[in-house]
């Protein structure tokens, strides 16, 4: 138990760099509050855009950057933790703990303002942020990983918002495209689901299943990758 706490502490150190994170979290919550308040006048799309395309990706990037370490540092940690299992698991746990307060705060704000329907898609967003960070951490280092994470969590959902508002020629998106949409942009897909072949509930379940699979696959890749100096 003592050993586990020491390993957790290794990755928790510096996870919440003050005041950067405090300011960002406060700003994100305030923005979420006003975006939720404006749903009645501007519609739900505005809220999704602010939360899924801007604030959650920035917050997620800040947290994920903490575990996106260079090969040399990872090689050092692999020796210290005596293998990739410890490094991977504790990084994922630290990342989960880092993402939790920011994303949970947004979910609570939407619920308190009378829109509890957003909670499932925000919760799934949380799980697939962990999955996206895990797979990126398994294949990329440092800055390349940070940039990729932001592109995947911000630019791709934004692209899906355009894609999902216009039906394809055959009238709807197939299972593969619908699964990808729910995985990469659950809030957008939840909002613009009419042309997807899965219901919002089914889509979010598929997204969760994909995320958990990706976390497992990422471990396999991470444990086989060469972190040579």
């Amino acid at each position: 138990m003592k050993m586990k706490l020491k390993r957790l502490r290794w990755y928790l150190r510096g996870l919440f760099p003050t005041p950067t994170t405090e300011v960002l979290v406060a700003f994100m919550w305030i923005a979420a509050y006003f975006a939720v308040s404006d749903i009645r006048s501007d519609g739900q799309g505005q809220f999704v855009a602010i939360v899924e395309y801007i604030f959650l990706p920035v917050y997620g990037m800040l947290m994920a950057a903490h575990v996106f370490r260079d090969s040399r540092t990872t090689a050092f940690e692999l020796s210290l933790f005596e293998g990739p299992g410890g490094v991977y698991v504790w990084r994922i746990i630290a990342l989960t703990l880092g993402l939790l307060p920011g994303i949970a705060g947004v979910a609570v704000i939407t619920a308190l303002n009378g829109y509890p329907g957003f909670i499932p898609s925000i919760a799934v967003r949380f799980i697939n942020y962990v999955a996206i960070a895990a797979i990126i951490m398994a294949v990329l280092d440092s800055m390349a990983a940070v940039i990729t994470f932001y592109a995947v969590t911000s630019a791709l959902p934004m692209a899906f918002s355009v894609l999902l508002q216009h039906p394809p020629q055959n009238g709807g998106w197939g299972p593969l495209m619908s699964s990808i949409a729910y995985f990469l942009s659950p809030m957008t897909s939840y909002e613009y689901h009419p042309f997807l072949c899965y219901s919002p509930t089914g889509g979010l379940m598929i997204s969760t299943a994909i995320s958990l699979t990706v976390i497992g696959v990422a471990y396999l890749i991470f444990s086989r990758r060469e972190f040579a100096p």
Partner: peptide, 18 residues
């Protein structure tokens, strides 16, 4: 390995305790 440059915010004590 050479060139030990660790940009991680842990303390030396954390290494020792681990």
């Amino acid at each position: 390995f050479e060139k030990p440059q660790f940009s991680i915010p842990v303390k030396v004590r954390d290494i020792v305790e681990l």
